[in-house]
Nucleic acid binder design. Sequence first.
DNA 1: GATCAATGTGAGATCGATCTCACATCCGGA
DNA 2: TCCGGATGTGAGATCGATCTCACATTGATC
Lengths: 340, 340
Amino acid sequence: MTQKGITLKEVAAAANVSRATAARALNSYGYVGDETALRVLEAAERLGYRANLVAQALRSGQLPIVGFVPGDIQNPFFARIAHDIEVELRKHRHNLLIASSEENVEQEKELLESLRSLSIRGFILAPTSATDSQHIVQLANEGAPVVLIDRVVKDLQCDSVVVDNEGGAREAVDYLIANDHERIGLLRDESRIFTAQERLAGYQNSLRSHGIALDESLISVSRSTVEHAVEATIRLFSRRNRPTALFTVDSLMTQGALLGLRSMGLSIPHDVSLVGFDDFNLATFTDPQITVVAQPISEIGPLAAKFLLERLAGKKIAPRHIRFPTRLIVRGSVAQFNRR
Amino acid sequence: MTQKGITLKEVAAAANVSRATAARALNSYGYVGDETALRVLEAAERLGYRANLVAQALRSGQLPIVGFVPGDIQNPFFARIAHDIEVELRKHRHNLLIASSEENVEQEKELLESLRSLSIRGFILAPTSATDSQHIVQLANEGAPVVLIDRVVKDLQCDSVVVDNEGGAREAVDYLIANDHERIGLLRDESRIFTAQERLAGYQNSLRSHGIALDESLISVSRSTVEHAVEATIRLFSRRNRPTALFTVDSLMTQGALLGLRSMGLSIPHDVSLVGFDDFNLATFTDPQITVVAQPISEIGPLAAKFLLERLAGKKIAPRHIRFPTRLIVRGSVAQFNRR
DNA sequence: GATCAATGTGAGATCGATCTCACATCCGGA
DNA sequence: TCCGGATGTGAGATCGATCTCACATTGATC
């Protein structure tokens, strides 16, 4: 069935030395005679020897693999980060194992459970729940380095790389208010997720600081998929006295809002102004282009990978918590309320 | 550093039996006394024993991991497939290791080289090159099952799951011709990639069968990124006597064309008609919506995973070559040439 | 010429799970 | 009562790489 690879033993035999000497020659440590080393290297080359990483892992206790558990690999945000992490890891001869939690805590638990027995060296996680995180704490306690991205978790001391969700959301809503909107709708996802909570807080803080009363009827909650967001948008805008502007908390929601509003015959920005959290390539293809709060997505993956690699190399310092600022990109989806 | 896990030895000691007996009890094979088995199971439970997959892999020669090498995980097409494969593998307690070739043959070679020493059980590949494939043949010869998706490779006997690229492209161009277009531009990527060749062939075959002469000046080649496609589009439409319609060979190209045409002030479908290969969510957000050739993307991943799992289970039958049909989705980006 | 350090090499243990083989013990049937 | 098969268990080998330790050499130094 599986054709066996060349083992160290065979190389050693071919070079007429012991396994120990062959290992020394190949990994250049300890004393080896020059001529012997040459013979071993030549034999290894000739036979096409490649070290068995599993055997190495059994001794060292660790496979050169890092686990990445994003909310959903199909989300371009995570796909981009996965790609960046992989590039970084590859430089250090590590592989990336991706296992989507699909935003499901139970699945996240199962995944981590199964990855743990794989002797994986470290983890980069986007935890699904801000509170139900005992399994992650446990993972970290077992000694495997963990870096959190996009979302953090209570009671867990480890590196994290997130963005300023509250500030970004606040800036978005501030901008709508600066354009004389007061009835500002919010399309948000389930609060279980950390980013959703922070973005909600930003929305609330902005309104509050401008003396605008919160109106629960302006908030629509849905699952974070385009389809659910379409429905939630239609629900929101079917009410009497509907919002004049809408803030959506992620790019899937924004896409859903776009479709929902179009299906209701509402035009942007004439009938409704729109600002979305998270930039996405579609935002510049629509007419008008969509104003968004952009995350520095290209920095998250590489930094998370860097942190993890440092931990793998044994760096022992206090956990670092990086929070990147966001940036409001003004395009054409917001109109001044009075001028409509 | 890494807190050690509980080993079989410790469980055996706790249950006061030998390692052999403990293994028998836990994996239920051979003879074990009922009471003994119970004691072992109880001890394992109490200590939180989890088998070390690396040690198992060393004996069995295989890790429960499958490698997936797509052209680019950021491409939604591959992200979707990766997700589907993962779901399927997870059912059989296998993990998915993703390593993007980034459409670079050299990188593909290096990746496979490094994955080989990981004792990975099988591979799902989208080969970057249709011809430079010696490394893949070699991989297959070593015994690891390989399933090709999206693209096939010469001289390699293994399962493959692709779509009818030639037919899809032909249908798209047929449709443009049916709408009285004759000067039909083609935006395609480097011919190294299998799908590009087939789609080019479809374009040529359609023209030929309608008695329209091929005109090399209507074909623009670019790398498959939005940015490069923008430039290629502008090059193509800056010529005198430009095309009245454009066929793009993948969704990134289609996006590039959209941006390129917009920047030149050309409107779709009034000035230029457009059909793209591969549906993508953006296609329904533009105005007008884009007519595309859709691939049955939701079927590719699960089928490839199924094939691979069957091979892993030891199924020995002739290689299967599945070629899914495509489907033309008519939206609003094509106008009758005479009616413009 | 003796001694000690530097240099070079191999035998064997180790990582954790599993499998083979040998050895008990028990029971029913002759 | 004795024998043979069924049943239950443990010692030790195995997978492949690496590391420790012990043992040879060699050369330099007094």
